[in-house]
Design a protein around this nucleic acid. Sequence first.
RNA 1: GCUGCUGUGGCGGAAUUGGCAGACGCGCAGGACUUAGGAUCCUGUGACUUCGGUCGUGAGGGUUCGACUCCCUCCAGCAGCACCA
Length: 857
Amino acid sequence: MALQYSPQEIEEKWQAKWEKSGIYKARDNDKRPKFYSLVMFPYPSGDLHMGHMRVYTISDVISRHRRMQGFNVLNPMGWDAFGLPAENAAIKRKLHPKNWTIENIKHMRDEQLKKLGTSYDWTREVTTCNSDYYRWTQWIILQLYKAGLVYRKSAPVNWCPDCATVLANEQVENGACWRHQETLVIQKQMAQWFLKITAYTDSLLADLDLLTGWPERVKLMQKNWIGKSTGAQLEFTVESKPNVKISVFTTRPDTVFGVSFIVLSPENPLVLELTSEAQKKEVSKYIELSSRKSELERMSTEKTKTGVPLGTYVVNPFNGDIVPIWTADYVLMSYGTGAVMAVPAHDERDFAFAKKFDLPIKEVISADGKVSGELQNAFTGPGIMLNSSQFNGLANNDALKKITLWASENKFGKGKTQYRLRDWLISRQRYWGCPIPLIHCDKCGIVPVPDSDLPVKLPTDIELTGEGGSPLNKLDNWLNVNCPRCNQKAKRETDTMDTFIDSSWYFLRYTDANNDKEAFAQEKVNYWMPVDQYVGGIEHAILHLLYSRFFTKALKDLGLLTCSEPFSNLLSQGMITKFSPQSNRIEKMSKSRGNVVGTTDFFKRYGADAARLFTLFGAPPEQELEWSEEGAIGQYRFLGRIWRLVQDLIVQKIITDGHKAWEPFGKEGINSFDGLDNKEKVLLQLIHYTIKAVSEDLSDKRYIFNTAIARLMELVNGLYAYVQISPNSNNGQKKFNDNERGLLAFAVRTLLLLLAPMAPHIAEELWQQAHYAKNADDTIHLANWPQYVDQLTIANEIELVLQVNGKIINKVPANRGLPEDEVKQIALADEKVQQKIKDTVVRKIIVVADRLVNIVV
RNA sequence: GCUGCUGUGGCGGAAUUGGCAGACGCGCAGGACUUAGGAUCCUGUGACUUCGGUCGUGAGGGUUCGACUCCCUCCAGCAGCACCA
């Protein structure tokens, strides 16, 4: 074997061998404890670059480590294969989306993920656009439909002109489409399918507390998205139409005596009903104007408020005040009741509005309960009530509760909790998605496709034009069916599902991926779930993770599984960045920014192991990592350093003996420092310390791989130093006695085991060459993770730091575990310390065991 | 604007519990080997220094024998949300 480290010669060899021997297969219901390791599956866009590789490397290292620790590891991979890019590519290049997708999957799987040296169980691969998968997506949707969680409703929805389809609320960012940052979403009134995620609002919010293994920021983002507010819903009677009431939601019922007008959203149907004859013209003009404003325009006019009065009034039931009704587009129809009570004295928005239109500002809370005169700003803090009849003098927080109670006793309103989260719009007017398995029958209404007729296959003979409307609508022979209930003519639903549905349950399918009788067997899903470690990008903090949690809870209630949260631990890896010549900035690595580093080239030149090490070493996993060619080459050099060290020890027959590894100490190594000379002690301690440190770094308490690699580098440096100071024999080669050979063999063995999860190819190759493998079929990746002896991780002798008044004066060697008095004596006797303190009185001596002494004078 | 996170050498980063700041790597400098070195091996590398030391973790203050770490004020950068009543 060459003395030169050549990843090209070893990596693909081992990849092929691992695949053939099936060492990464997960076993259902094994006796070992299970570990479900999951990485967010990719959209098969065609080409992964180094920026993508980080997440797969991190997840793979965790899987490999757990496997060596004796867990029955499930580490699956699949494809989120439905979606718009396939359809757009089809329109542009006249390829069928299916063929485009399959080609991409083949390349990404065989040329990229496999060549990274990942340890997936490919027998469980799932592809969401295959009918053996989406058959069960349809089945699950029908179960949810039967449970009343799927409904159809005509509603104002977000329409992206570029996608030519509607979007979920979660897919609108700053008023623009999440796929097209420049394309403003427009509002359309359409009949659409919704999933009733709001039925689970409370448990989605409350159970965030159970997710102790999730990053706080992700939980916070979900919490904000759900947006719980507590307050009250209050009723204001219209003065001229006493049978009409306007409901408002407010978090500040304590300010109700300060209401000086009511505002309705322009979309609120009450606006037209309540406008006076005199105001009709102006109000219609205003509604027309604001309907033409996009979401973004409505936001950008943040500071300048617009609105018109309706010319009618309501009665404030709390104090009989008669106040005007206005319409203004700072009030959103989609939140609460689409109407608010305006209290300019205590709400900044209302204050701005009242100032602009010269409406009264009535103070009802102040810091001391006294009138403050003219307000310059809204007073939003806590204080004492005034101008509020029987509630005067109370702290506003007490008044809030009492007013709510009083309102419900007198039927003016009641306490209410309001959420920001709205139901999930799931229908899309596109072709390349999972067909919704429902049928429209004139007589029977909406009829689910019977289970026996699933899957509703997506027809393949279709011409895609990219014009608006559901492409499936044009396929008469697919569209027209007989109603399963009355057998009369009926039509299929032609919308397809949001692809986030496909990814909301794929982790369940992995547990039983080849089942053609059911979505997953209870026994298997309950054995594997929940996922023990999920790794993925922060961009899915809301969408995918919230939807998956919702699916898990809904399926649990349907009796299909027993866990209520799908992902016990979540790691959100940071992105890989690189200087982009286009923008002259360091930005996220992406094709469109022109700063990608391809995988194939890099693997060919430096190997997958070096790529893996660099992405692990550059920064902790949650932080951003800037790609650096030099840094990556540094890892290649480190691997070369290991290679040469081990090769030398093999060629010189130091750690091997014929076709066996040299093992006079057995696999456990030496269990005490007794009888070792100093340099041996140092090496033995280094080995045990390294095992401990790397094991802790790879544990779920840390997952900090950069320090794990740093510890391995220190071990390698230590081994070089050890070999260097050993005496030469006559022929110039290093001379080692049997004990030293055993220690070296143990050191190298340990090094390779600790390296194996991170650089699997070189570890396996050297494992074989040094004959640590029992036979040709033995693999380091199923070997036991090394154990350390705590006693041996620390030296008997320490360096004692001597301080005077907290400043370091000297460092002296001392034995570990000395009694405090003795340590004090050492410190006081020290020459440098003496010089410093001279005759001054020692006030206090602080001893930190085995670390330092601080003398205070 | 609100919320959250982050500020440490020329660079990426380490310091797990309040106890030696800068592990490890990149870069740089010097040496060895060599026909050659952009390979490899070894050594050095926070700043200032009168070579005794002095200063040093975004800025300022505080608590403490002792602060990168805890508290307060401020500054800068990043991210999420953004008229949510």
